[in-house]
Amino acid sequence: MGGTGAERRRAGWRLAWPAGLALAACSGSQSALDPAGSEAERVAQLFWVMLIGTGVIWSLVIGAAVYAARVRPGPHDPAISRRLIHWGGIGLPVLALTALLAYGLQLMPELRAAGDGLKIEVSGEQWWWRVRYQTADGRSIVSANEIRLPAGERVELTLASPDVIHSLWIPNLAGKVDMIPGRVNRLVLEPTRTGNFRGVCAEFCGASHALMAFAVVVVTRPEFEQWLSQEAAAATGASSAELRRGAVLFEQVGCGGCHAIRGTAAAGTIGPDLTHLASRRTLAAGILPNEPAALRRWIAAADTIKPGVRMPSFGMLPAADLDAIVAYLASLE
């Protein structure tokens, strides 16, 4: 599948060639025009085809209008006008639209075909992502704000939401699908190359809709296996006195009421699971780099970084306590 995907991509780029300069502006970790998944590739190809068609049709129509109004504004034979309406208004559009509709319709079942086995449940919540990997042997591994995928496989995402409507969109891999309370939707992704991408919430979901992103990491199958087994493991114990102090404070301050760290008493399910927080690429749902300074800022002032966030800010903690908690969390590889 992966090989044919790459070929299709090359075909897509060849088709895109006339679009010239626009191409230079297409690469990016969150761009539908730099596809890294088979769905996105086919849609990008569709887009380039349509863009060329659009350019041609627009030029013809506006050319005709300018010709009639400015270039030769004198009276013409009505027969020409009649033919213009018959062919320009009806004939050609019906032909072009029929072809395009057929193109679009035949893509749909293909893009919605079933997955290969690996299933991931993603739940959009204000304003972060709960991720649960269902392995073939029936294990369920909880993570948050980052989706890891093996390249070349069709992975089925189950999408839900407990609060308001969200929409999961990884432009490089595929189109978006909404996460609607009371409903369960499905999205099948087939990444064709490894790399780091960015996904976002595409449906307006309240004050911090703009601050609800996530990292997408596409790796090879063996790397994925290794990562998954690491992710499934409990947190490593705190190795120094300062880290132990942080662990105790984490519990005393009540963080465990919302967050879980597997292997400790913290088992909250309201906020993201933090068991392997330090191994993630970003913090706070894709909006901060994962480094201790940012983590400290986040814990101290979550509400100014993400308006309306459901986590209280802990800037009132004594600096030493805050530092200890940050150090502990930053140790959770």
Binding site: P162, V248, L249, E251, Q252, V253, G254, G256, G257, C258, G268, T269, I270, R310, M316
Partner: peptide
Amino acid sequence: GVPASGVPACASCHDAVARYPAY
């Protein structure tokens, strides 16, 4: 707690084994 509505267990702060002195 009431996880569905985002209410953590009261005990996680108010009854912690060694309660944080601010609570």
